[in-house]
Design a protein around this nucleic acid. Structure first.
Lengths: 110, 110
DNA sequence: CAGAATCCAAATCGATACTG
DNA sequence: CAGTATCGATTTGGATTCTG
C-alpha cells in the first residue's frame, strides 16, 4: 500500500474550499495527466511515454489519487497482457476551464 | 537563508506553462495569503492571525516566494518597531479569477 | 513587530528491480 | 502491459528560540 501520493495536503479553508480543488490539481504530476486526458482516454503506458519524466510509481500514485477524487475512471480489459484505460469523468472534464485559465495567466505574465 | 519555500516544484510542461501558475498558487499556504490580500493590504502579524495554523517561518517563506514571483509587494515603514505591509501587484490581482473558478469547482462537485 | 536561525522528525521522491 | 516492492537520499515542516 502506497503512502505517498505525490499530492500536497494544503490546509483547509473554512469558507472557501479552494483547498479541495488544489488537492486535486495541485500535485506534482496531476495537471500533466489531466492535460493528456482532456484529449481523450489513454493507457498507462501511453501516459508514461507522454509524460516523459514520470516514474511508474509516481504515475500509479497520481492516477489512484485522481480516481479516488472521482475525476477519472480506470477501465481494465482482461486481455493478455492486461489492458488498462484511463478517462475523465464529467467532474474531471470540468477542470479544463481552470487549467485553461492557468495557462492564460502564465502566458500573460511571463 | 531559507532552503524551504513551501512551494512545490512541478515539472515543466513544454507547451502549456501551467506549471508556472502552479508554482505560484500551488503551495501549501500561497492561496490563503492571496485570498486575504484580495481584500486589501495586510501586515505580517495580521496575516499570521488570519491564517491560523501558519508558523512565522512558513509565512515568511511564502511571502518571499510570492514577492519573487512578482505577485505581491513588500513595503517597509521605518517606524519603531518596524511596520511591514504586503499588497498585491496587478499580476497578483489577476489571479483572483483563477481562485474563484477553483472555489466554484469545489462547490459544484462536493 | 517582523522576522531569522537552528534542530530534528517525518514525509517524500526517484531509481531500480521484480511480478501476474 | 501495468503495475508493486523496496531502499536510501533528499526535502520538508513544525516547534522553539533569538534579535534589530
Amino acid at each position: 500500500m502506497s503512502v505517498n501520493n505525490y499530492i500536497p495536503k494544503v490546509p483547509a479553508c473554512i469558507d472557501c474550499n479552494i483547498e479541495k480543488t488544489l488537492n486535486v490539481i495541485g500535485g506534482k504530476w496531476a495537471f500533466l495527466v489531466l492535460r493528456e486526458l482532456f484529449g481523450g482516454k489513454k493507457r498507462f503506458g501511453e501516459l508514461q511515454r507522454l509524460i516523459s519524466a514520470v516514474s511508474p510509481r509516481a504515475l500509479t500514485s497520481t492516477l489512484r489519487h485522481l480516481e479516488e477524487q472521482g475525476v477519472l475512471e480506470r477501465h481494465v480489459f482482461p486481455t493478455v497482457p492486461v489492458t488498462v484505460e484511463y478517462s475523465l469523468t464529467p467532474k474531471g472534464v470540468d477542470l479544463h476551464q481552470i487549467l485553461k485559465e492557468m495557462k492564460l495567466w502564465a502566458a500573460k505574465w511571463t
